[in-house]
Simulated assay, not measured.
Amino acid sequence: MAIQLVDDYAAADAGGKVDIICRNYPSFLGMLDSRIEGLVYTIETDRACSRHSDRGALGVRVQTSGTSDPTANTGISETMTRDALRTCDFSSGVLEGTENEIDYMYEAYVIRDMRKAYFLFNTQMCILKPKEKALFTSYINGAKDAAEIADELGITQESARLKIHRAKKKVKLSMLHCMQTKDRRDGKCRQEKQISLM
């Protein structure tokens, strides 16, 4: 499920990205953390397979120093890989010796963007009035459905759905403005960089 979430997010336009955050809000960060752990496991397995094939047909590893601690080495390697994936800083060579280095990097960048968008979404909810924010937050967190909100406010379910929709629309429009401003700025930076390279 976390893999599909990342794939869907990467393929979505800005509005679709906001919708994905809304639909998966309560478990969004957990799914991203799950995917990072899945990538750590995959990368470590990929590296182990590469090391194994580098040993040749015998597959025998000879320890020469007598001071090796395989458990500590594995833990350190996994921590370095995890940190590199979270920060998208691959300068330490954590992906060297893997077959899918570019794919791992791409997915790490998408996950970083997803995390940033999630936190932007949280800050954009502050544009809502306090009661509107409380209603919307309880809905997207899964604490209450439209029927429970309607009962609590003494309105029809249709009116509750409309209030939820309006709140989502306000947050989405604010997010889209921020995302499009970032895209315009990034595009301008890329154009300036291309011009300076000419």
Rank of each mutant, 00 (worst) to 15 (best):
A160G: 01
I43R: 08
V40L: 05
K17E: 03
I127E: 14
C178H: 13
S138E: 12
S174M: 12
A134T: 14
Y104E: 09
K170S: 12
M105G: 09
S53H: 12
A72P: 00
P130F: 10
R161C: 00
A57Q: 10
R82E: 12
D69P: 02
Q124I: 04
D8G: 00
K193G: 01
Y9G: 02
M105L: 03
V62T: 02
A150G: 05
C22F: 07
F136N: 04
R61S: 13
I195D: 07
D69Q: 14
D183K: 15
M114F: 02
Y106D: 12
G97L: 00
Q191D: 13
L32K: 11
Y139F: 04
G66Q: 04
F28C: 01
M198C: 03
L120M: 09
A147V: 12
D8V: 01
Y139S: 03
Y118G: 03
E101K: 11
G30F: 02
I164F: 00
A11K: 15
M1G: 06
Y41H: 12
K182D: 11
Q180H: 13
F121Y: 15
F90W: 13
M179D: 05
C22W: 09
M114R: 08
E192T: 04
M125D: 10
Y109T: 11
Y109M: 06
L95A: 01
E37M: 05
M105K: 15
G142E: 11
D19I: 07
G56S: 09
M80I: 13
A2Y: 09
L153S: 03
K129V: 11
Q194D: 08
A146Q: 05
S174L: 08
Q180N: 14
E158D: 11
Y104A: 07
C126W: 13
K170G: 04
S50K: 14
E148S: 11
A57E: 12
L176K: 08
Q191A: 09
